[in-house]
């Protein structure tokens, strides 16, 4: 199956792109997807425990089972005020 990952804010800089398509085996979780992303985008990995993950418009955790066509968004924390 294929899912699309969207990067927000400075994650675009760290990943070098705004979004990417990832091919996964059926039954993969959001955590499995992230593992693949760290290999492709090693600069993102240090942020792995401090990012907000959403599928569609819903916040999700790593154990969420992905489905064909899911739109995954990764949001970094920002501190400015």
């Amino acid at each position: 199956m294929q899912v699309t990952v969207h990067f927000y804010s400075y994650f675009k800089d760290l990943a070098g792109c705004a979004n990417t398509d990832v091919a996964l085996e059926a039954g993969c979780s959001l955590g499995d997807l992230l593992g693949q992303l760290w290999r492709r985008f090693p600069k993102l990995e240090p942020m792995k425990n401090s990012m907000l993950m959403a599928v569609g418009v819903d916040y999700q955790t790593r154990d969420y089972i992905l489905r064909e066509g899911d739109e995954v968004s990764l949001f970094p924390p920002v501190q400015g005020g």
Partner: peptide
């Protein structure tokens, strides 16, 4: 609940480092 752990120090630019559009705040 959103951000369980702070990012590693130095990973996240501040507005002083990265800039900010004045009208955004």
């Amino acid at each position: 609940c959103l951000y369980p752990e702070p990012p590693p120090p130095g990973m996240v630019p501040s507005c002083a480092e990265g800039g900010v559009l004045g009208v955004l705040p």
